[in-house]
Amino acid sequence: MWKFIVRRLLVTFPQIVFLSVLVFVMAQFMPGDALTGLIDPNISPEALEIQRERLGLNNPWYVQYVDWLGGLVQGDLGQSFRFKMDVTALISERVMNTILLSLVSLIFTYLIAIPLGIISGRYNDSPLDSAITGYSYLGFATPIFIFALVVLWVFGFMLGWFPTSGSVAPGLDAGSMEYYISKLYHALLPGLSIALISVVSTIQYLRSEIVDTKQKDFIITARAKGASENRVYNKHIFRNSLLPIAAFFGWEITSLISGTVFVERVFSYPGMGLLFLESVTGRDFSVVTALVLLFGIASILGALLSDIILSIVDPRIRIK
């Protein structure tokens, strides 16, 4: 297992380097540079040139890349042109919000998807399965923000059960119990909206795993041993089918990213996704660059996590 994990980590490293190059190139193609955001229109072009030289913006690209990378490693993501502050400082609270939102939606996703996937797989081709599969088609076909709008409208406005925007109620002491409860409360509805869509792939994945596992020979062995049908399902079929689901977990993170972008917009939830959309429309490119990099790293780490989980839970990989 360790060999596998080490090998997997070795692959991750060049992936991240590749990502950083890609993001760097992307940043180079964006209009403006690190100074653009700070420019005072009164500065003379000569003074600007001196500043450029001082910041190394006239150096060859690879020197700039190394400088940029060096900055990244120290947590320097540049300056936001819109907010006139360090991108790192700007992003960090947003990142925490998005992580909270992602966790909430992951929990919802599994709470909903596992029972439904199990029902769908165990009673495949029953009316119940057809209903669940029907919902899946709906979920596949509907853009996430439409779901989010419906959820927002029903639970936020019509029923008034949940806050309709923001990530925390105003006027609460950061760090107090009420503050955290309020944060969680604000994350529930957007989290549910993401989950309603992201359950679809997990349900279908689990369903097909179960349908597949059901006809394996070792299931016949279990029946021949005298295991009751419930035992056959609980101890053999579900356990063996959940394994790939556990491994799917990392990939779920990747799909969450796209989910958060739109759902944060609908719920005006101040996370990375909303910031991303605002920065794109506001042409705040250093922030866009930083967020693309973070999203990219999250996806790579998600895939890594998937493989590591798989290597831990699957003895065929563990015992090597």
Partner: peptide, 29 residues
């Protein structure tokens, strides 16, 4: 009834299968 059958299978009657490579649960020792 199925409950009775479960008591008999694996106890009074048992079976050896053709393909040993697939007849065991890969995730259980």
């Amino acid at each position: 009834p199925k409950s009775k059958l479960d008591k008999i299978r694996g106890d009074e009657m048992a079976m050896i299968f053709q393909d040993p490579l697939t007849a065991l649960n890969p995730l259980t020792p």
